[in-house]
Design a binder for these strands. Structure first.
Lengths: 205, 205
DNA sequence: TGGTTTATGATACGACCGTATCAATGCTGG
DNA sequence: CCAGCATTGATACGGTCGTATCATAAACCA
């Protein structure tokens, strides 16, 4: 029984073609034929691995969020061996800004999916559309820890600040995406805001 | 020469049908026929007043931003005869949160247009997509005035705070739109953040 | 009344869409 | 070597889309 192909890998490969094609044409305008051409396979094969366009789109959303989560994790890991909470948060939020092409694509598509979810119940029911909840918990935990270590200004509420930082980051990301603001100025705003939360950071961990 | 109809009014009426239909079906899914049916006119008439769908969409973007600008202005006016800067800013940002249906629709469609503008140069060239610049200038001016009056905490930069507040408001609005957060909690975050900027407000102006 | 504007109607075009069908061809593991 | 999976190809269906065409009815003002 020959089964030389990893189905999940093929689906991933096609999903990445969907992402590239969507980044170029817009998620609203991309079709099965575009995805097939982008992936270098036949239309028939896209139908073979995804029975319908809806399933392809759902898998694409899942894939895009997974890829982004890995990216953020890598950035945080690259921030140092045992960085302080502020460095971790800055890496986390900084990775979410559309600074390079990969991040731009993520922002673009994730926002497109979010818009679709307003009128599409199936999309709205996907857990990935609410992934920010995980980030919120992470940042809250980091801020709580920083507060316990006396690194935060007085009167700072970790959870509210976490929500605020993530919303701020998302809003800045969108404005960068539409060309209203530069990546640098967005990063500066983030940094400014962190300065208003953290006391002077100790350099070592 | 009979000319009993105000063309601009008819175009506005059709544009509002576009907005209602788009809020129901999603901007990506709305067609000329949907707009005609929603407006209670014939498809032919939509073609008569807008020669193409692209022109209809551009007019719709213009209309939606104008309506929203009027709404915000009305809210600010309703905040009192001579309210302090904080009250004005809170009214301004609060009006931008998707608390009621009209505001939800605005957020939904404006975000949809923003996503389209990423891959559509004509849309990206529209000035309305960058309307936030005006809001940024307004809030900056209000904060500068508040700083001059000694109402701000020390170390507060009016322009950066203005950018920050607007991005925060936009990000919170999106999270409310997708059902991740309640309007109340979003308003609470905004209020919290304003407390971190303003000193105890004087009650009178 | 006549000419112009507003509006409707029916209809059709060509294009693209997602989906489906049927046949054919590799390739490979047992 | 051959059963079976992977992949392609050609093709077509019914549907919807934006757009266009032509005829026509009603409303209006000079």
């Amino acid at each position: 029984m020959p089964k030389q192909v990893d189905h999940e890998q093929r689906r991933t490969q096609i999903a990445e073609a969907l992402i590239r094609a969507s980044a170029r044409l817009g998620l609203h305008a991309v079709g099965m034929r575009d995805v097939a051409a982008e992936a270098g396979v036949s239309l028939r094969l896209v139908q073979y691995y995804f029975q319908s366009k809806e399933k392809l789109l759902l898998f694409g959303l899942r894939h895009v969020t997974e890829r982004f989560g890995q990216r953020v994790a890598a950035r945080v890991r690259a921030a140092g061996d045992d960085p302080g909470p502020r460095a971790v948060i800055e890496a986390l939020l900084g990775a979410a800004l559309p600074a390079d092409e990969e991040s731009r694509v993520f922002h673009h598509l994730y926002t497109a999916y979010a818009v679709l979810s307003v009128t599409d119940d199936t999309l709205a029911a996907q857990p990935y559309i609410k992934e920010p909840d995980a980030a919120e918990a992470t940042v809250t935990k980091l801020l709580t820890q920083a507060a316990a270590d006396g690194q935060l200004r007085s009167g700072t509420d970790p959870h509210t600040e976490a929500v605020s930082l993530l919303a701020l980051s998302a809003g800045l990301g969108t404005s960068v995406l539409v060309g209203q603001r530069s990546t640098e100025s967005a990063a500066a705003v983030l940094s400014y805001h962190l300065d208003r939360i953290f006391l002077e950071p100790r350099l070592g961990p």
